[in-house]
Design a binder for these strands. Structure first.
Length: 206
DNA sequence: TATGAGATTGGCT
DNA sequence: GCCAATCTCATAG
């Protein structure tokens, strides 16, 4: 049994009214916040260090062409989960970000593991803490998130929730989003500069 | 109805 | 660096 990193003070559940109503604002706001999974095997907590915004009208967003069975959770009120399956093998976790019916979200791309690190290790099958939740597919695997959680309220009293931590980022880096062909020039990726748990480029622009 | 690309990752050359 | 994994849905025919 390897000792977990010190998780610090426990996070406080975020209320929906605390979440910014704008998608880009929410993507920035979530940097430094916590994602918590009260799992039957034990609680897992990660500090959010990288996000991407997919606002209304963005042609690279899954909601752009209207509501489908797959993307309907993006049209829920801000603070609900949207989980989708990609490339036939990975899940990606998003937070719906606007008013009901709008269709927009924030993709969580990387976490700094804080609590339940051993559980994440077992689930991911790797010893490297740096690789546990660096990248959207890895994040979902580490936190045991799949379509079970599509549409759940992250601001309710369920097992998966968003929390506030004491440690706020001193600055927030920005860049273009990763892996897109449409709207590739948009600067809608946000991260904590210098944090080793961030995936991909860490200083394209700030 | 068929086909290809996609907000990715891990394993192999 | 390349490629397979194989779900969802937009686009083409």
């Amino acid at each position: 049994m390897t000792k977990d990193t010190d998780p610090g003070p426990p996070p406080r559940r975020l209320r929906r009214t605390e979440l910014p109503c704008d998608t880009v604002d929410l993507a920035r706001y979530l940097i430094g916040m916590a994602l918590v999974h009260d799992h039957p095997d034990g609680t897992m907590t990660g500090r959010i260090v990288e996000t991407e915004a997919y606002p209304v009208g963005d042609s690279s967003g899954h909601a752009f062409r209207g509501l489908t069975p797959r993307n309907q959770s993006l049209f829920l009120e801000r603070g609900h989960a949207y989980v989708y399956f990609i490339y036939g093998c990975h899940f990606c976790f998003n937070v719906a970000s606007e008013t009901e019916g709008a269709g927009a979200g924030v993709l969580l791309r990387a976490l700094e593991p804080r609590d339940g690190v051993e559980l994440m290790r077992q689930r991911r099958g790797t010893a490297r803490i740096l690789d546990l939740a660096r990248g959207p597919g890895r994040l979902a695997t580490a936190m045991d998130i799949d379509r079970r959680f599509d549409g759940v309220d992250l601001c309710g009293d369920g097992p998966l929730w968003l929390g506030a931590l004491d440690q706020r980022p001193t600055s927030i880096g920005t860049s273009v989003r990763i892996g897109l062909s449409r709207e590739r020039e948009r600067v809608r990726r946000f991260y904590e500069p210098g944090n080793p748990f961030v995936s991909g480029p860490k200083r394209l622009s700030t």
